[in-house]
Amino acid sequence: MVGLGSRLGRDDAVGLLLAEALARDPPPGVTVRLREAADALTLAQDLLELCGPVLFVDAAALDAPPGDWRLWPESALALKRHAGAVSTHGLGLAESLAIARDLGFSGTVHLFGVAPFDLTPGSTPSAALTRRLPGLLEALRAALNRLTGAS
């Protein structure tokens, strides 16, 4: 499980917060990693090293109210591509996956996306998201159990 995000964009930290909470008591067989403001190249190398099924957790633009979550397989993801990026700064998760796939990464990928309340600059998550974190953590554990066949 890889938690993604930035702590400087309020609810953009949700992937990191959930990963930290999960890491305190990880489900059996699950390795938790935090990738704060990770660049696409580092994430691609992570995938190559992991060599197994991966669940990304991140804030995501959902067709759902803030605080809701969705679990998608990679095939259902509509990740934004950055084909016109003028530097490696512009590359994102889509490019990480594409690079890793082209270099032989064959693990399954899912995304646990959470609709944010507030993505304005700021180092603390919104109060609304903070209240939702226990429920989100429960949902994340259930999702991991389903994906690992533990339940």
């Binding site: 190249l41 580092t42 691609a44 190398q45 992570d46 190559l48 090293e49 490019e95 594409a98 690079i99 082209d102 270099l103 032989g104």
Partner: peptide
């Protein structure tokens, strides 16, 4: 670098390893 993944995969893998 993206087209090099297909033509020079070992080079890109090495680059990613070193960067990481």
């Amino acid at each position: 670098v993206l087209p090099l993944i297909k033509t020079h995969p070992e080079v890109v893998k090495r680059a990613l390893r070193l960067k990481k």
